[in-house]
Every structure is written in structure tokens, then in C-alpha cells.
């Protein structure tokens, strides 16, 4: 089965920089919480909070922000002028 990105007018091919930015945003968002050596430490403390604990807490609004940005970028992948015309009952453009 071929995928959307193999189609001749693929949104990924049409917007390489935006697509790369989306991929990097999502990958970074996962990496910086998956790779524990980055934050498994006590210092620097924030008030009385060890680094490990406040890092995780601060990470959540950051995730929200990163994903919000991702959605904004994904919207740019759509070709606005063609959007209403191609979006039908059976299938729309990539969103």
C-alpha cells in the first residue's frame, strides 16, 4: 500500500521545511523526557524542588505548547485555496 507521501502532490514534498519542523518538534518532545540522564539529578534546585521534580512539572506546559505549535504547522501543510474543493464526504486533504 502506498502512503500519502508517495502521492504526486504530497503535502510533505510541497512543504519540506514545515514537515521537518513538525518531525523535529515531536521527536524532541519525546526525547527530552525519555532520556532520563538529562534530568535525573538534584541540582539545580528551584526553591526547595530538586531538578528532577520541577523539570517534569515544567515539561507539561512545554509539551502543550510544542504540540500546539505542531498543529499550527500542520495546518500550513494544507493548501488553503484547494481545501474546500477537495474535501468531500469520502476524504479530504491531509490535515
Amino acid at each position: 500500500m502506498t502512503q500519502a507521501n508517495n502521492k504526486p502532490r504530497s503535502p510533505i514534498a510541497a512543504h519540506p521545511i514545515t514537515s521537518a519542523a513538525i518531525a523535529i518538534l515531536i521527536a524532541a518532545d519525546i526525547f527530552f523526557v525519555l532520556f532520563t540522564p538529562i534530568y535525573a539529578r538534584i541540582t539545580p534546585k528551584l526553591g526547595n524542588w530538586p531538578f528532577f521534580y520541577w523539570y517534569l512539572l515544567v515539561y507539561m506546559p512545554v509539551t502543550s505548547l510544542a504540540l500546539w505549535l505542531t498543529l499550527r504547522l500542520q495546518n500550513r501543510l494544507k493548501q488553503p485555496p484547494q481545501d474546500p474543493a477537495t474535501a468531500t464526504q469520502e476524504g479530504g486533504v491531509r490535515s
Binding site: K7, G91, V93, S95
Partner: peptide, 11 residues
């Protein structure tokens, strides 16, 4: 393939 990105209520 196109059904994986479809939003039937796009319009």
C-alpha cells in the same frame, strides 16, 4: 490511503 487523513466533516 486517503481515508487515513479524511475528515468527513471538513466541509
Amino acid at each position: 490511503p486517503h481515508q487515513y487523513t479524511a475528515d468527513p466533516e471538513d466541509t
